[in-house]
């Protein structure tokens, strides 16, 4: 891809105010989450039983929870987990989906039909129930959560990549590679997949929020991240328990989660419009 395509896209992205807002917010948030252990004003588990359910103040910006733990600190640490789940699970879905889609699209014919039939059937399965069942039977392990959530998301990625690969594989450079005897595996990995990255990146930015949402959903129900760890979903869930007396414990994590989801969605939409000016919104 030429440089001008990326610089045009960049210019278009900068014009989209919501996407820029999203990018700035996310950069700040990621920075905060990475630096959390050094900048957090209190310890994650530090209890102060003299000061439980305190209102927001100078000492505790977002107040304290029912064990007197600083909510701001907990939101920062929770953000690390939510972000990590979102990013790692999405990357898993990208790897699986892109490879699957590329193989299906490049090989074509019967293989393609069978592989895509499987995707069609899997589409009809409500994956979130599968994840719940997995978590129930194999314990609420965070690594398992990454993989399970990643596997709920790869189907669309596979379809997008397949479509891209089908249109790419008729291009001359693929013929050239084949004519000098490059192996199928290398054609897929070195020539086709790098050229599908644009749409894949766009879809990745839209996958991260849905994974974060799914993780928060599971944690809210008590089936996701387990204590002593806490994600935004767990924090919202414990906020609901005390919302009558201390609504801020619900509102701050809810606000953070919502702002993050907003930003990711805006950035994803902005990237899609910027990279695909024809505006192929399905």
């Amino acid at each position: 891809m030429s440089n001008s395509l990326w610089s045009d896209a960049w210019a278009r992205l900068l014009k989209n105010k919501l996407a820029v807002f999203g990018a700035i917010f996310l950069t700040l948030e990621i920075l905060l989450c990475v630096l959390t252990p050094w900048i957090a004003p209190y310890g994650f588990e530090t209890q102060n039983l003299e000061l439980t359910l305190a209102r927001p103040s100078f000492a505790h910006w977002f107040g304290t929870d029912n064990l007197g733990r600083d909510l701001f600190t907990r939101i920062l640490y929770g953000g690390r987990i939510s972000m990590a789940v979102g990013i790692i699970a999405s990357l898993i879905s990208v790897v699986v989906g892109v490879i699957y889609g590329a193989i299906s699209g490049y090989l074509g014919g019967k293989t393609d039909t069978i592989l895509m039939r499987i995707v069609d059937i899997l589409y009809a399965l409500p994956f979130i129930f599968m994840v719940i069942i997995l978590m129930v039977y194999f314990g609420r392990n965070i690594l398992l959560l990454f993989v399970a959530l990643g596997l709920t998301q790869w189907l669309t990625m596979a379809r997008i990549t397949r479509g891209q690969v089908i249109s790419l594989k008729q291009k001359e450079f693929v013929d050239a590679a084949r004519s000098v005897g490059v192996k199928t595996r290398y054609i897929i990995l070195k020539h086709l997949i790098p050229n599908t990255l644009g749409p894949v990146i766009v879809y990745l930015t839209l996958t991260i929020p849905s994974v974060i949402l799914e993780e928060a959903f599971l944690s809210f129900l008590g089936l996701g991240v387990q204590a002593p760890m806490a994600s935004w979903g767990t924090l919202i869930s414990s906020g609901v328990e005390v919302m009558e007396i201390a609504p801020w414990i619900l509102l701050f994590p809810a606000l953070m989660l919502s702002l993050t989801l907003f930003s990711l969605n805006f950035l994803g939409d902005g990237l899609r419009d910027a990279l695909d000016p024809k505006g192929a919104r399905d």
Binding site: I236, L250, L257, L261
Partner: peptide, 10 residues
């Protein structure tokens, strides 16, 4: 953008 478990409690 707002999940059910945020809208509900609010």
């Amino acid at each position: 953008c707002l999940p059910t478990f945020v809208v509900g409690p609010v």
